[in-house]
Write a protein that binds this DNA or RNA. Structure first.
Length: 290
DNA sequence: CACTTGACCTGTCCGC
DNA sequence: TGCGGACAGGTCAAGT
C-alpha cells in the first residue's frame, strides 16, 4: 500500500502529534507485527518520550529519548492512526471524516498508549507490516537501509544519477527497475505507472533501450508526481489512511492508475490495465509504445 | 550473477 | 447466496 507520498504524509501527521508524548503502555495481539518486545519494551520503550519522527524510503522512524527508535514499515495495508483521549480532536476537518471507526478494531495489531491517555494504533489487515525497536545508532546498519537507493526528492538527486542507477539493471524492464528499492527509494506500483505515463515510456521497455532523453523525462515526471502526491495527502486505493484515519486524494488527479477504461488525458485513447513485472499495470497504449 | 517467482496474510470482488 | 479463484499499493527468500 503506502509508497513514499503516503509514508511522508503519515510522517508529517505524526511529527505534529507525537513529539513530547511519553509511552505508558504497549499492547499487541499479533507478535509478528512487533517481534522484539519483552525486555526491550520495559527498558527503552515504556517511559520513553518521542523526540522526532523521520522517514527513509517507505520506512518511518520514531526516535525516542531513550536512544532507541521505533522502525515501522506499513507494507501493503499498514495504518498508523492517532486518537486523543475520549472527545479530544486533533487535526483539520471533521472527526467524522475518518474512515476508521472505534479503535482498536479487528485489524489492530499494536496499540501504544501515551501518559496523557492518547493512543497510536498500528492497524494492518494483511499482517505484512512490522515494527522493530532498535538502538537509534544501529538503524542505518539494518540490511534494508544499507542497500536502499537514494531519496528521489532529495536536492542532490539528479537525472544522471537516476540513469546510472537504473542502468545497473540493463536487462530488466523499466517498471521492475523503478520498483527495485536498491535502485531508488520509495517508488511503488502507483507512482511507477504514473511517472512512466508522464514520460511516455512503456513499462515493459528494457532499461538498456531507454535513451538519456527519456531518462530526463522520467526524472521530471517522477519527481513531479511524487511532489503532487504529497500535496494531495497520498493515494487511497483501498486501505491507506493518514494519522486521522482520512483518505488521500491523489487518485482524483491520477493519469492512469485505476483509470482503465477511461480516456487518456493527453490523447483520448482508452487506458488499459495489463500485468508487468508481476504487478497490475496501467498504460495508455498510444502514448506508451514498446 | 541477473532476473523472476513464490511466500508472507486477510479481505473483497467476480464468474459460475 | 455459495464457493473457488484471482487480485490487492511491498519486500524477501528461493528458484531458474
Amino acid at each position: 500500500m503506502p509508497e513514499l507520498p503516503e509514508v511522508e504524509t503519515v510522517r508529517i501527521g505524526l511529527s505534529a502529534l507525537l513529539p513530547g508524548r511519553a509511552i505508558a503502555q504497549v499492547e499487541q495481539n499479533w507478535d509478528k507485527s512487533f517481534p522484539n518486545t519483552s525486555a526491550d519494551v520495559r527498558q527503552f520503550l515504556i517511559g520513553a518520550k518521542v523526540a522526532t519522527v523521520a522517514r527513509r524510503a517507505k520506512v518511518l522512524l520514531i526516535e525516542l529519548d531513550s536512544k532507541y527508535s521505533l522502525v515501522i514499515h506499513l507494507k501493503m495495508t499498514g495504518q498508523l492512526v492517532f486518537r486523543g483521549k475520549s472527545g479530544e480532536h486533533f487535526g483539520a476537518g471533521h472527526p467524522n471524516d475518518s474512515l476508521i471507526g472505534a479503535l482498536p478494531d479487528r485489524s489492530t495489531r499494536v496499540t501504544f498508549t501515551f501518559t496523557d491517555g492518547s493512543q497510536l494504533f498500528f492497524n494492518d489487515q494483511r499482517k505484512f507490516g512490522w515494527i522493530r525497536l532498535l538502538p537509534t545508532a544501529e538503524v542505518p546498519q539494518i540490511d534494508f537501509f544499507k542497500k536502499v537507493g537514494p531519496e528521489p526528492l532529495s536536492t542532490n538527486f539528479t537525472w544522471k544519477e537516476l540513469g546510472e542507477r537504473l542502468r545497473r539493471r540493463p536487462n530488466t524492464n523499466i517498471k521492475a527497475a523503478l520498483l527495485d528499492q536498491t535502485v531508488i527509494a520509495g517508488v511503488g506500483n502507483i507512482y511507477a505507472d504514473e511517472s512512466l505515463w508522464g514520460a511516455k515510456i512503456h513499462p515493459s521497455t528494457l532499461v538498456k533501450n531507454i535513451t538519456d532523453a527519456k531518462i530526463k523525462k522520467l526524472y521530471a515526471s517522477l519527481t513531479a508526481v511524487l511532489k503532487i502526491a504529497i500535496e494531495k495527502g497520498g493515494s487511497t486505493d483501498r486501505n491507506y489512511v493518514n494519522v486521522e484515519g482520512k483518505r488521500g486524494s491523489y487518485l482524483n488527479f491520477a493519469s492512469v492508475f485505476r483509470r482503465e477504461g477511461q480516456p487518456c488525458l493527453r490523447c483520448g485513447t482508452t487506458i488499459i490495465k495489463t500485468k508487468v513485472a508481476g504487478r497490475g499495470t496501467h498504460i495508455c497504449p498510444r502514448c506508451q509504445k514498446l
